[in-house]
Nucleic acid binder design. Sequence first.
DNA 1: ATATAATGACACCAACGCGTTTCATTATAT
DNA 2: ATATAATGAAACGCGTTGGTGTCATTATAT
Lengths: 212, 212
Amino acid sequence: MGDRDTFEATRKRGRPTAEERVERRSQILDAALPVFLERGFGQATVDELAAAARVSKRTIYSYFGDKAGVFTEMVRSLATTVSDRGPHEETLEALAARMVYRLDSAELIGLHRLVIAESTRFPELAVSLHDNGEVQHIARLAEHIRRERGAQAAERAPELFTLLVGESHRKRLLGLMPAVTREGAREQAAAALAILGLRGIAAAEPHDPASL
Amino acid sequence: MGDRDTFEATRKRGRPTAEERVERRSQILDAALPVFLERGFGQATVDELAAAARVSKRTIYSYFGDKAGVFTEMVRSLATTVSDRGPHEETLEALAARMVYRLDSAELIGLHRLVIAESTRFPELAVSLHDNGEVQHIARLAEHIRRERGAQAAERAPELFTLLVGESHRKRLLGLMPAVTREGAREQAAAALAILGLRGIAAAEPHDPASL
DNA sequence: ATATAATGACACCAACGCGTTTCATTATAT
DNA sequence: ATATAATGAAACGCGTTGGTGTCATTATAT
């Protein structure tokens, strides 16, 4: 990506082709993500956004109106991709591990951090992220638990989700831990399931009878 | 607090007395908190900090060097107060409820949000907050559990802490929930303890048997 | 072919905000 | 008493940045 600054030279001028036109919008949003992630909304300048997207500042304003427009559109489009779209046939444990891996990825942690930081200025983004993320995840967990363990056990889905993200999520939000590994996600998922007695298949025997 | 702007008029000039001198520092830090909380580090201006503290901008620079200095000193001094200093004789459930109440207070949520937002710019503040907060809280929980249930049960302290803060903490970080009530904190603590089978030992009569 | 829409490059502006300077003022040190 | 340190008030320098204007350039519409 160093070439961005080195031989910037002259990009193609003039009216873009129809193909270029449809690409431009997502091109800008894609390029905006890393900029906002490492600089934050306030510190990121529109010139940086333009340079990252290899587009003129003028074009950014023509597409999104202002800097806040780029930000909100970017977060909104990302929020819709947060929801988990995995195979329906996998086991609860596999689903949980995949969730942890995704939730603790550098990208989603950064997005979360960004939205938390700007939750006062852009409250609707916080709502959007929550509705598309946490709410969907818990629903999905509940559905899996119900299939494997019945409706009553499914009521524990919120607590399972809480244990899944756990402290590591908070630590990562604070920048105190690197992104999770696949192995780490599996271990974390297994531990959370074990605590709630949801590990293993079929038999509804809680491994800790005192918990109920 | 409205008088801040209304009859600003003229404050006392000249060299302060010794008593005023020692007050000045904490006066600035105290006044800086609400400003940073509702504006964020980037949007808060030094003039706002000065006005809130009823002190001249000059004095702020003389005490803290720059805006970042005010911010880091404020967070650091607050971080040391995060740790729970309650009575040692209370029950685990009472301790847990008090913890939830404090952790979900508007003030600590705001502080957390602030530190998360600036964790890239001020990584050491994140470390400080974590060490003084989460680490201390978990240790304190572990100590209580050990006294009431033994060393083995005490190993669950991290998971208990996770369940205690739970989803409400994340929601509040996103600005999606108002500050917790005392009653809400009690219920949340009771639910978390019940899940881990840590409820009801030292005369801890559940005031709501239906909660689990 | 001609008009027009959309872009890149670049200059430009106005606002803002950090940090400094100046000067009057008041307590402290000696 | 006199010098000095610390402050309030106010102005200001100066860099940064969001957003616009201008013009050349290129594709599209008709």
